[in-house]
Design a protein around this nucleic acid. Sequence first.
DNA 1: TTTGTATCGGAATGATTGTTCCAAAATAAA
DNA 2: TTTATTTTGGAACAATCATTCCGATACAAA
Lengths: 214, 214
Amino acid sequence: MEALPKYRFFRYIWFGKETKIMPRTKQFDEKEVLNKAVELFWKKGFHATSMQDLVSHLGINRASLYDTFGGKEELFKKAFQEYRNSSSDTVKRLLTGESSVKVGFEKLFDFAIQETVNDESRKGCFVVNTTTELIPGDESIQSILCENLENGAEMFASVIQDGIDRGEIDGSKNAKDIGLMLFTFYNGFRVVSKIDANPENLQSMVATALSVLD
Amino acid sequence: MEALPKYRFFRYIWFGKETKIMPRTKQFDEKEVLNKAVELFWKKGFHATSMQDLVSHLGINRASLYDTFGGKEELFKKAFQEYRNSSSDTVKRLLTGESSVKVGFEKLFDFAIQETVNDESRKGCFVVNTTTELIPGDESIQSILCENLENGAEMFASVIQDGIDRGEIDGSKNAKDIGLMLFTFYNGFRVVSKIDANPENLQSMVATALSVLD
DNA sequence: TTTGTATCGGAATGATTGTTCCAAAATAAA
DNA sequence: TTTATTTTGGAACAATCATTCCGATACAAA
């Protein structure tokens, strides 16, 4: 039995135009709650995070959670997209706002090193974690990850190509290959830094990887 | 109330020496069953694999599973160690059995590419998957992963150092740095190949990464 | 105020989780 | 054959899972 909100229909006729009664407003900031969900899924992954965990840490009611975000899977996807958007913005900002290609990549990896060093819970990268946890599996997530890989490698490659065009990088090099290689290295970096967060090791491996630009 | 096998004690005295009654033997090959467990955990991860999954796919009884391997966590650790042992043997064999350093690394990555292309279920690397799923978390797993990282990077580095000593690789290079960088790239490779298994992309990024040896 | 409805806390649901237990069947040695 | 003990299938268990539901409360608009 479904309870249709029939009263609305009558009101529309009664007043002769669309009228809406706005009841109690949301008691929480949707964006803020979503960010807490990001934190939790990021740290524990999809399967190890229970709805009880979320209810306990998000600070909103169980029913409100379902009303606002749908079920667990829907909430995860929203949280994941939120992370991906803000994270790809950051990457673009760090990478393209610099004087030279190499400095841009150094800024990007320095940022990642800082994030690693400051993150005592060793969450790593939400995108990498999701890739290894949810593939094989959810196809809609897989297509997002596929797009993410293409965009990321493409962004890397275009920055390098710009460097080649400016004569900053040797013209014999292939921007696409190097871009994909560095993007892949970035993924490995996010895995390894979960195990060993020693900044000296991280810095020296980054320097070695970036030597392909010389 | 615990049922102690007291009869043994009496028999020992009766016959004057150690005597053992061997009952029904195991109906399954322990190693074979463990390999099936590896397959399942590898594909789905720890949390997404249920004991019911295991009972259904391992072909042995639920009680036998608990008797032989202990609980879920113990079984996972045994499966993980099994994978790690055989996998590190393979890496060592591919890497060190070659005429030159670069050919060794090429063999290693060619093997990984083949594994990727042939694996329609996109399992990736069990070690990488476990790193991203179970850190932060289980500390005993973390120490295994830490050891694995050290051994892997060390193996890479020593092969490179041998190349330097033989004059095959430029003496100005740092074997440890390059070893760690290539090991990290290898991890990233295992992540990215879950998303895009295109062998041409994989080959070109490997060639670019291995150019640090030139 | 009155009214309508969303939020809220928490109970309830049914499925699934990991694990234990038991009686019956099986089998290697005595 | 007898004996001892494991394997086996399946029932049973308590805990947790995601999700739904409900009565009470809160609040914006009328």
